[in-house]
Design a protein around this nucleic acid. Structure first.
Lengths: 326, 326
DNA sequence: TTGTAAGCGTTATCAA
DNA sequence: TTGATAACGCTTACAA
């Protein structure tokens, strides 16, 4: 491995001069500088990240922590983060699993973006106490070293619920996420608030898991209980997909007997028939904003918590209820 | 930041004793050791990765390089890698984009797994020459520091083609991947070999891109040229999904007018109607094997190139051709 | 069993 | 403008 020492020897200068030259400092003459640069090139010099990090106490790397590498939400989100990070001179790495948590306290990364309910809040607070910078996308956490960039779940869930109500539906199933999920809980709360304000609407909560299997299970129950057209709000699209899938085997039709709306607008839904009504938001922007906030935190700037806005996407999966008189 | 120096001071021992204790060396008495460990705990000591790496010249981190963070193939593949890596004491990080390449030469990782056609082979060979360890999943590359773990594309493409032939199809469209893709080229070659051996079969190649849009475009051409039932082999599932999607708008039916087979068995296809015939392989095993080979390379062991075996998954997307007499 | 000290490859301070 | 040198936090050969 060739180090600045080797270059210094070959160039007949000191290591500090080499370091300055390599870092483009104006302290060294253009002449020496270009001579050193040429030698470095010729010797195939590559700086050593560990040494630089040890000295500078920064890696210029951001880490994102995910529950697993599956999941349809991640693509654009990560691309958005990467794009912004790169533009600011940072690299982005994606990690998953408990083992990789150590990267933050051991300073293998300059900061972390969290999208993993399995990453305990207490652990995050510990790291924040040690002055590590964190952005959370999946919970509320108050700390000077932690910033939140959260979806406007309340607006989204309200939008979806009102959409069903506007179309005259009087019986609504809500398929929730796992009980620990922040997004699920927030969405559920908004749904209840909205429904509590109206009369003559029956609603039933079914506990789901944010995965396709949860939607399938919910479908089974709904089919069994089926008497007349009903509406269903799956608190995420992935469950809506599972539900659709399960329903197509039966005589019931989405958008006619079962009126379905989801949340997330994942790519997969574009391949559903009929098109799924859902709640949309820019995953790319979400990622970029998270990265931006993290970089600001690292730079020592104070930042406000941010909110990602959502919109309703209509779809033929929700039709009008057949009129009834009470 | 608390370092071993601080612990040494508090414990009244030297830093080397602290280091030995922390690393569980038997050179130090259990008594001193546990005293030191207690103090370390109490002081909230966390080792510094950069310092350790600088000294030991290893990070215990493996890097995977992907084209982007989208793509349906990755989930299980990455989980498989992570699982094996973790079991062997390694962490896995996922990187994307040219900027992150530096992690390998700068020694921020101990080795790399490549699944990104945009990562030039010349660049990889340079790194290999510098003694960095690499496993490639998307090309053939001969070097003592590079190992290949490739899909058995030939077997898969042959299986798929023969499946269509067995069912009596006489006109077959092949939708290829982008021209630079190793997988596409290998699959295409096997298709041609198989088809060259039979008579009375007409086949047409359509250049695709391995993305949904490529399948959609191919669908448009096939629909325009449609006279009687035809077979289509999309060289990956994602294009098959795009093709299906485009076809459902027309009067033509998959499995009846257009007999379709894909390659990859991505999760998405499970939500297609009718079920897509395709070529399957264990993405999890593929990932695990890649990680295993890389770790062996890093350990200095010599390893043989490996091959991932594939199987045919039948589906209603391919029916029997209506008999014809020539 | 414990301590001393060198060294990993950088950056950065201070002198020259 | 350049050079000597300390320091970053750790591991490890060698000495005590």
């Amino acid at each position: 491995m060739v180090s600045i020492k080797d270059i210094a020897k070959k160039a007949g200068v000191s290591i500090s001069t080499v370091s300055y030259a390599l870092n483009g400092s104006s302290k060294v003459t253009d002449e020496t500088s270009s001579r050193i640069l040429a030698i470095a090139q010729e010797m195939n010099y590559i700086p050593n990240a560990a040494a630089r990090t040890l000295k500078k106490r920064e890696t210029k790397i951001l880490g994102v922590f995910l529950t697993d590498f599956k999941g349809d939400v991640y693509g654009d989100l990560l691309d958005g983060m990467k794009e912004l990070a790169n533009a600011q001179g940072y690299d982005l790495i994606v990690c998953s699993g408990k083992q990789s948590h150590r990267m933050l306290p051991e300073r293998a990364i300059d900061g972390a973006i969290i999208l993993d309910q399995a990453f305990a809040s207490e652990e995050l607070l510990e790291y924040a106490d040690r002055n590590h910078k964190i952005v959370v996308l999946d919970r509320e956490l108050k700390h000077k070293n932690i910033n939140q960039v959260l979806l406007d779940n309340k607006a989204g869930a309200t939008l979806a619920t009102e959409y069903l109500l506007d179309r005259g539906h009087k019986k609504i199933y809500i398929v929730s996420g796992p009980s620990g999920s922040f997004d699920s809980n927030q969405r559920m709360k908004a749904v209840k608030q909205t429904l509590d304000r109206v009369d003559h609407v029956e609603w039933i909560e079914i506990e789901g898991d944010f995965k396709k299997s949860g939607g399938e299970k919910a479908a089974e129950r709904i089919i069994k209980e089926y008497k007349e057209p009903v509406a269903v709000f799956c608190l995420n699209d992935e469950m809506a997909v599972g539900l659709c899938n399960r329903v197509t085997d039966t005589g019931l039709a989405i958008g006619e007997h079962i009126h379905l709306i989801g949340f997330d607008n994942i790519e997969l839904t574009r391949y559903l028939q009929p098109r799924l009504a859902t709640i949309d938001y820019s995953k790319r922007k979400w990622g970029a904003l998270a990265a931006e906030q993290l970089i600001k935190l690292i730079a020592g700037e104070t930042v406000e918590n941010e909110r990602i806005y959502v919109t309703l996407v209509e779809g033929e999966s929700v039709g009008h209820a057949t009129k009834k008189v009470y």
